[in-house]
Amino acid sequence: MSTITNQITIANHKIFKNGVLFFEADPALSFKDFLKASWKNLKVKYPKFYKMDEISKLGMLAAEVLLMDIPYTDIAQEDIGVVLSNAHSTIATDINHWNSVSNDSAFFPSPAVFVYTLPNIMIGEICIKHKLKGENAFFISQQYDEALIKRHINLLMAQNKIQAAIGGWVDRSEEDYLAEIFWIRK
């Protein structure tokens, strides 16, 4: 069977690593500035981060803090999966794109925005940064259904399609955000 060894929660401008406070920022900061401050604190050189939409940044941040302590080089890249979920897909970025095309006289779609209107782009960003080439899936549910994510990962492991995975929830509505991700290994 599989074991969850590490967990990250990001909410209310606080990052918890395995239940312990890892980083916190001024609650008065905007979500955007919180993401920026959190990433800066990690001292990771990765300029691409700043080009991403906010929900991808949230997922990237969670994955970075999650994987920093995990030795996984013994597992082949194609045997590590990423299975994430949320309720609101990419609604904030969708509205952003929509505002640039809704009016005939102000019609300025941008590929740099549009590409982020797919929730699995966050998975792609995480895979690129950490060289993970295994199974991908992005599920949408009204609430975080951890059992569904674990079942999917466990079935993939039982079929020997992956040996380890990042799983969890990375959600952003127009009002709030929450990331809860874990590392699970066979």
């Binding site: 309720a87 897909s89 929730p119 991908n136 992005f138 599920f139 949408i140 549910s141 009204q142």
Partner: peptide, 29 residues
């Protein structure tokens, strides 16, 4: 209604299926 879980719920309810539907949104795959 713009949320994918809601759309799935509307359709599943219409058919009277008791299970919570699963929704996959993973681009073109």
């Amino acid at each position: 209604r713009v949320y994918l879980w809601k759309m799935a719920e509307v359709i599943t309810k219409h058919f009277g299926n008791p299970n919570r539907p699963m929704v996959i949104s993973n681009a073109c795959i």
